[in-house]
Amino acid sequence: MFDAYQRTLAEVEELNMIPVMNLFIVLIPFLLATAAFYQVAVIPTSTPQQVAQPAGDEATDAVMVNLVIAADGALTLSATGGDGDEAKLAALGAELPPVGGAPDVAGLQARLAALKAEYPASETAFILPADSVGVQTLVEVIDGVRERAGAGDAMESLFPVTVLSQFIAPVAGEAGAVDVELSPEGEEPLELLPEPAEGGP
């Protein structure tokens, strides 16, 4: 009986792995050839466009944020519009010195969150970088302006509509300006192109 058992054991054949190997050898080159080792995303943005805006169409619970990025990474935040309370808007503005040579994005997000809490309908931010600001720095700031990490994995939307313009250094005694030319009469207020937070056309 013991001999019969031994014989049975000896007769157990190994699994034939050749078909599995063939399958792997086909699948792996296919997946390697089609794999995306980087993932491309986009940041929707726009430049200012001058269009006529109907009178009395301004929302009082929305402000437009102007964010100047200096060459050294310093950020200057200000807001316009809203209910016209200049003192309140001035209090919500900020000057944020660079941290470790880079813009203080965390500090900026805290300020923007305060602005958003005060004016919840706000969505638009003008970004005004200095000429020498690099594209990577610009993208980091735009990321910080558009959203910030919320509870868990969720992202809290801040100012998803970003408009790129250029800061013109102020002449002595004057404030800086955006490079947007108003109409000669100066009658048509500037309205920004509506840009959805995610996706778009």
Binding site: Y38, A41, T45, T47, P201
Partner: peptide
């Protein structure tokens, strides 16, 4: 063209 999408790496 007034609308842009800045291509970035995730």
């Amino acid at each position: 063209f007034f609308k842009y999408r800045l291509a970035v790496l995730k």
